[in-house]
Design a protein around this nucleic acid. Structure first.
Lengths: 145, 145
DNA sequence: TATTGTTATACTCTATAACTATA
DNA sequence: TATAGTTATAGAGTATAACAATA
């Protein structure tokens, strides 16, 4: 009789993850709100180190493409991003930071780094271990609806 | 001159955590939808191992009391819970599972355990490592608004 | 024919404010 | 006066469907 997966362990992991994410969400919401952004706008900005096709953004955010249009409209209206054409495929539009957008992104990331509960209590080795786990979890991804 | 924390690594960790969070939310949404529940209804059901005053439920879910009324109305209409009076304080109503509600809660929990992205791709050793990290991260918590 | 992005629309979640009943 | 719960309402987030342009 081999031992199956430990249900008690799984339940504890899920419970702790849900609590951690609740804390992260609250923290991130507070940070973005302080910068005049919604959570989704903040996440989009975080993705934009380099220009990103809108379709890719939808996959990163696990949301519908039409919602990326909404987010892009708002960020563009505030002068934080621009829609730039893709040289290879004329259907594609990439989202790219403006100067102001870059500055706000830097501020966002600095604040998140300083306050996010998922990093505060970890030393270098633990951070490396966490990153390894997150890479494993990123592999088997279904497509967002 | 000691090396400070690695900003690039921290940025990657945060990005992956944010994405994982979105995926877990999407997965939980799919699971609850398959049972005819919204996310909040599923969370409420998860809380109801034993009867809970509506005010306490609002604190657990980090939401306004008026929304608990909405949730309770829907769950009660489906025969999953009942409002039971509190013997000590006639203002208080406790939410308690019915037989059907208990069955659905069991099914919900089993499905979440089987499908949540934070567990699906990990072997036993990785789960143990994740749990260790989560324990480190479980530090001081703020109270909900 | 399939895919990227947009528009218009509608639905769902959730909070705020005013109210009743009880403490 | 303060607290538990309810009602009505409004705002924000997000998806769906139909569409245009391009592949």
């Amino acid at each position: 009789m081999g031992e199956g997966p430990d249900p008690g362990q799984a339940e504890e992991i899920i419970g702790r993850l849900l609590e951690l994410f609740r804390r992260m969400q609250a923290n991130f919401e507070e940070t973005t709100a302080g910068l005049g952004l919604t959570v989704a706008e903040g996440q989009a900005l975080h993705q934009l180190d380099t220009p990103v096709p809108m379709r890719s953004m939808a996959e990163s955010l696990w949301c519908d493409a039409s919602y990326v249009t909404v987010l892009a409209d708002r960020l563009e209206a505030r002068g934080l991003i621009m829609r730039v054409p893709d040289p290879d495929d004329r259907r594609v539009r990439r989202l790219a930071l403006t100067e102001a957008g870059r500055a706000l992104r830097d501020e966002l990331i600095a604040t998140v780094h300083a306050t996010t509960p998922a990093l505060a209590g970890l030393d270098a080795a633990q951070r490396a271990g966490l990153l390894e786990l997150l890479k494993v979890l990123a592999t088997d991804r279904d497509a967002p609806r």
